[in-house]
């Protein structure tokens, strides 16, 4: 894997884009016309080669005004996306305001889908503020900082999450700042020692 790694930017030249990558890119190109965003959770590991599928891609956005969300809802609907939750635009907005995720897929599809949420706490704010740009051929996506991603995955703690954390660590351990990584682990109250994540 050839990576051009710098603070808040990772270049992945000559990456072949999967159908999942194209789905995410199609969605984020519409989303970013209205708001900043950051991709979190399982898709981040998949983007860098992890050999597993996923049903959904988690994306966080800042709190939007009702009118801005209505415009986003209209943009997505016009461009062939469908909201899987039964609510109308008003109901979907209320769900977001209550901290719930809403799901969006290509019309007449269910999987893959995007789970979209408003930022809910300090960690989410930090994830968006320090988001990392991943530059691929003809495309850019913004993902969670990898140190937070690894610590968060360990905190989630399912087998799949731990495997994602191990995978990201193995790919990026030579690039990550181990002192920052250690402080992230402390913030989440997790240790990676049992899984060979040695910081």
């Amino acid at each position: 894997m050839e990576l051009q790694y710098s603070d808040r930017e990772i270049g992945v030249s000559e990456k072949y884009l999967t159908q999942l990558d194209r789905f995410v890119l199609g969605f984020t190109r519409i989303l970013e016309q209205r708001t900043a965003y950051v991709i979190v959770s399982g898709y981040v590991a998949i983007l860098f080669g992890r050999s597993r599928g996923t049903e959904d891609v988690d994306i966080l956005i800042p709190h939007l005004e009702r009118e801005t969300f209505s415009q986003l809802h209209r943009d997505l609907t016009e461009k062939g996306y469908e909201f899987l939750n039964a609510e109308n635009a008003e109901g979907l907005y209320d769900m977001l305001c209550r901290g719930m995720g809403i799901r969006i897929a290509e019309k007449d599809r269910v999987i893959p889908n995007i789970e979209l949420k408003f930022l809910k706490d300090e960690t989410d704010l930090c994830v968006l503020r320090d988001r990392t740009a991943v530059k691929m051929p003809g495309a850019v996506l913004y993902i969670s900082p990898l140190d937070i991603q690894i610590a968060y995955k360990l905190w989630l703690g399912s087998d799949k999450d731990i495997e994602d954390a191990v995978y990201l660590w193995e790919i990026f351990k030579d690039n990550l700042d181990h002192t920052v990584m250690k402080s992230r682990m402390d913030e989440f109250g997790v240790s990676g020692e049992d899984y060979g994540i040695g910081v």
């Binding site: 072949y16 080669g49 790919i171």
Partner: peptide, 17 residues
Amino acid sequence: VRTYAAWVKKTPNAEWS
């Protein structure tokens, strides 16, 4: 996962992807 990551790291992007 560790073995697979090691393979990805030493394989050109065009190939692993």
